[in-house]
């Protein structure tokens, strides 16, 4: 996994959900641990979309519900495999 992608994802999520980046691990759940609701998730998807210059369809959001899952999803998308 690309450590730079992980750092960028963590940076975006930490900023939008107002948490310390150090507190985030691959297992961190956006919903259960960070209490993100549907508006937060939609906002995060659009922010990541802008950040990585790709389009994230709404139906893909369930594939990004932990830091690790988001990393896998975005890595694939950035490699053009998705």
């Amino acid at each position: 996994m690309d450590p730079e992608i992980r750092a960028r994802i963590i940076g975006v999520i930490a900023d939008r959900l107002d948490v310390r980046p150090e507190a985030l691990t691959p297992e961190t759940s956006l919903v259960d641990d960070l209490e993100a609701d549907s508006l937060d998730l939609a906002d995060l998807a659009l922010t990541l979309e802008e950040h990585f210059a790709i389009r994230i369809p709404e139906e893909d959001i369930p594939q990004m519900l932990t830091i690790g899952a988001a990393e896998i999803y975005l890595s694939k998308r950035l490699e053009g495999h998705a």
């Binding site: 508006l39 939609a42 906002d43 659009l46 979309e49 802008e50 389009r55």
Partner: peptide
Amino acid sequence: PRAGSPLDIP
């Protein structure tokens, strides 16, 4: 339109 935020209207 994708530059709009889901947070805007609420």
